[in-house]
Design a protein around this nucleic acid. Structure first.
Length: 491
RNA sequence: GCCCCCAUCGUCUAGGGGCCUAGGACAUCGCCCUCUCACGGCGAAGACACCGGUUCAAAUCCGGUUGGGGGUACCA
């Protein structure tokens, strides 16, 4: 059995979206599972839309996900180059070969003419097909067209009878009538090959054994198979994986929200969560496991278990899963991913002192079970770093609006001033004493303190908050709150 | 229009003729824990699109209907 060789072949026309990432992941998993080779090829034949920046962004996204490629950009390999724009003479060579075999011909029709005829066909209620008017041009006719200044495209002479069989690992045998396939363009007049042609030349030359790609390519596969056969290339195995849809069941796109892998990165999604979640889109293992480490996926992944139906992208589940992975992080690792967010927010400087790091670690410990996205560390920790937090109006009304609030806060102020050590062991008895004095429950005492200290009713346990803030800040904040209450600024 | 693919809880899925009064996860709801919010624990509700076959027996096999998706470019 020869080694498995798979590839991911994005076109650098934007960012890497989750659909592409999932395709890359499945290819990578298949390669790693079979100890094969994962090739990365950049399909940049669309001159108008491809950019170098976009290529870099895709590379960054793959690196973020930890999908390392064995051959491709920055890595090389014996089947390069790995940019289609650098393989032009190869396509030329095989296009010429097809013409020699009379399986391809020059077409002098312009895109405008073609489009016009297509519109006519639609109007007449007929199938939109190329009318093959350039299929048998004589040398004189070609010369005449050239004299007009026309530059030809090259069309593949598709089979006119019979049928083409696509053997798909996921979908089984799919049969296409050859009458459905018309003479399609393989070489554009701008000197670039089209996708359906370049993909065959590249996959064949790069010795790809398994073509794993989105289901949107299934309908084009018979065209490609005809080229493989015309050129005498051996066929690879095909596996068309289901599409990823938005909540409204239409193809997932920007209008459904974030779809860019790097955007997820920027919001604080962990690569472990992305990979795990993406793996579940169109694939499942058994009736109980949903959490998979990358190693586990490599071990358990198989194309046979890939589902046939499209999957709706569920952001809530991704968020939940990200929270799970955040909670699994060691405090040190959590610090590493959280730090940039705090620095960006101005909570911590570029150069963090040991004291600041210690403080950060202590905060993180309290926050870890409370966030879904790393990005949340900014909002959730605001009052640990800044004094200018705004009091949430509604919550202030609800909690500080109660009759005894002022007296209770005053009591707490004095208690905390006097307590020898500001920790639960020493503070709790004082709070308990306060309960009897004012005839209230613990919540009635703690909630006003929480609001005073944080501006909200959401925070870690009050004793932890007290300790983290320290006596000075606690007293100052309670005093400020009391003042605002008296001034009527809060309620 | 024509061609192709698909169809289990709201969502992702397990299920490949009897183990299914259909299992798990997210979301939802309730209870517990509790100083709030989370986390955690327990529980509830919730699906085999429809119609015909085949079979002693169908979510599982076949056909049709309906619905969704994709393709049909000198985009990839």
């Amino acid at each position: 059995m020869s080694t498995v060789r798979v590839r991911f072949a994005p076109s650098p026309t934007g960012y890497l979206h989750v659909g592409g990432a999932r395709t890359a992941l499945f290819n990578w998993l298949y390669a790693r599972h079979h100890k094969g080779v994962f090739v990365l090829r950049i399909e940049d034949t669309d001159l108008a839309r491809s950019t170098d920046e976009a290529t870099q962004v895709i590379l960054d996204a793959l690196e973020f996900l930890g999908l390392d490629w064995d051959e491709g950009p920055k890595r090389g390999g014996e089947y390069g180059p790995y940019y289609q724009s650098q393989r032009l003479d190869l396509y030329r060579e095989y296009a010429n070969k097809l013409m020699e075999l009379d399986r391809a011909y020059e077409c002098y029709c312009t895109p405008e003419e073609l489009d016009h005829r297509r519109q006519e066909q639609i109007k007449a209620g007929k199938a939109t097909r190329y009318d093959q008017r350039c299929a048998q041009l004589t040398a004189a006719e070609k010369a005449a067209y050239r004299a007009e200044g026309r530059i030809p495209a090259i069309r593949f002479r598709a089979l006119e009878t019979g049928e083409t069989l696509v053997r798909d690992i996921i979908r089984g045998d799919v049969v296409f009538e050859n009458t459905q396939i018309d003479d399609f363009v393989i070489y554009k007049s701008d000197g670039m090959p089209t996708y359906n042609f370049a993909v065959v030349v590249d996959d064949a030359l790069m010795k790809i054994t398994h073509v794993i790609r989105g289901e949107d390519h299934l309908s084009n596969t018979p065209k490609q198979i005809q080229i493989y056969e015309a050129l005498g290339f051996p066929l690879p195995e095909f596996a068309h994986i289901p599409m990823i849809l938005g909540p409204d069941k239409s193809l997932l796109s920007k209008r459904h929200g974030a779809t860019s892998v790097m955007q997820f990165h920027d919001e604080g999604y962990l690569p472990e969560a992305m990979v795990n979640y993406l793996s579940l889109l169109g694939w499942g293992y058994d009736d109980s496991q949903t959490m998979f480490s990358k190693e586990d996926l490599v071990k358990k992944f198989s194309l046979e278990r890939v589902s046939k139906n499209p999957a709706v992208f569920d952001l809530q589940k991704l968020e939940w899963m990200n929270g799970v992975y955040i909670r699994e992080l060691s405090l040190e690792d959590f610090y590493e991913v959280a730090l940039p967010f705090w620095q960006k927010a101005g909570f911590l400087p570029e150069k963090v002192s040991p004291e600041q790091q210690d403080y950060a670690l202590r905060i993180l410990k309290e926050l870890q079970s409370r966030l879904k996205l790393v990005e949340d560390v900014i909002d959730l920790a605001y009052y640990f770093f800044k004094d200018d937090y705004v009091y949430n109006k509604e919550i202030v009304q609800k909690i500080l609006g109660k009759p005894q609030t002022e007296a209770i806060l005053q009591y707490v102020y004095e208690a905390i001033s006097a307590v020898p050590v500001l920790d639960e062991e020493h503070v709790k008895p004082l709070f308990k004493a306060g309960l009897e004095k004012y005839g209230v429950k613990m919540g009635d005492l703690i909630q006003p303190i929480r609001v005073a200290l944080t501006g909200t009713n959401i925070s870690p346990g009050i004793y932890e908050v007290l300790e983290l803030l320290g006596r000075d800040r606690v007293l100052a904040r309670i005093e400020r709150t009391l003042e605002m209450l008296r001034e009527g600024e809060l309620v």
